[in-house]
């Protein structure tokens, strides 16, 4: 019950959640790490499905390497989630330092980890959308690598994939909201500075996600 309450506070009342959980310079990272690992698992599952779909486009002689490539994609997605956690925390920490933020990096790392939880939900919903979209569509094999690349681009630029991107963006905003409250607590920032510290990298991240659709 307590865990559920804590999760509800994290998601709905982050201003009330963080005080008391970032005590000292070295806060406990087990829960943030668990959240990030959970995000990594979800990301790995999505990567496994997407890579299997991509393999279906490749010629049969290359498709024999499918299991290896899927394995690489799963491991890469999992590791990338952890690296993303560290990087986004570092970016938050750096920008907040420019805004006069005080506090250990581990505190920022904990905030970044906690804030990843809405993105887990977003990844699940996006994955469901992608799954149903591609299961109802046709996957055709392509022998030419250039055509394979074009097919992947086509795959990623479809309306359903754009919907999945919008869903992800919405939950990134939810995460950003948590990060803002968390950075205020972790780096002793004002609301404006925390918003700037979180908003800039989130804005860049959103642009990176949607540039392919805009372009």
């Amino acid at each position: 019950m307590s865990i559920m309450m804590n999760i509800a506070d994290l998601l709905l009342r982050p201003a009330a959640f963080f005080p008391g959980r970032l005590e000292g310079d070295k806060p406990d990272l087990k829960i943030p790490l668990a959240i990030v690992l959970l995000s990594g698992i979800v990301g790995a599952v999505s990567a496994a499905y997407m890579s299997s779909v991509t393999m279906a486009m490749l010629p049969s002689d290359i498709a024999g390497l499918g299991s290896i490539i899927v394995g690489i994609a799963v491991v890469s997605a999992f590791i990338a989630t952890i690296i993303f956690w560290v990087i986004i925390a570092a970016v938050f920490h750096g920008i907040s330092a420019l805004r006069g933020g005080k506090g250990d990096f581990q505190r920022t790392l904990a905030v970044a980890g906690y804030g990843t939880l809405p993105m887990v939900f977003g990844s699940i919903i996006s994955g469901i959308i992608v799954y149903f979209s591609l299961s109802g569509a046709t996957i055709r094999a392509v022998s030419d690598p250039l055509q394979a690349s074009a097919a992947v681009t086509e795959l990623m630029s479809g309306p359903s994939m754009m919907i999945a991107g919008v869903i992800s963006l919405l939950f990134v905003l939810w995460s950003a909201n948590i990060w803002v409250f968390g950075m205020q607590e972790a780096r002793n920032l004002s609301g404006k500075d925390a918003l700037i510290s979180v908003g800039i990298p989130v804005l860049i991240y959103c642009l990176l996600i949607f540039l392919p659709y805009i372009g």
């Binding site: 569509a137 479809g158 994939m161």
Partner: peptide
């Protein structure tokens, strides 16, 4: 694998349910 021209790899259709979601 069928090259379903009416329903390419990434479907051109935008299901209403996704919009609702």
């Amino acid at each position: 694998a069928f090259p379903d021209n009416s329903r390419p790899v990434a479907s051109d259709e935008l299901p209403l349910v996704w919009i609702v979601v």
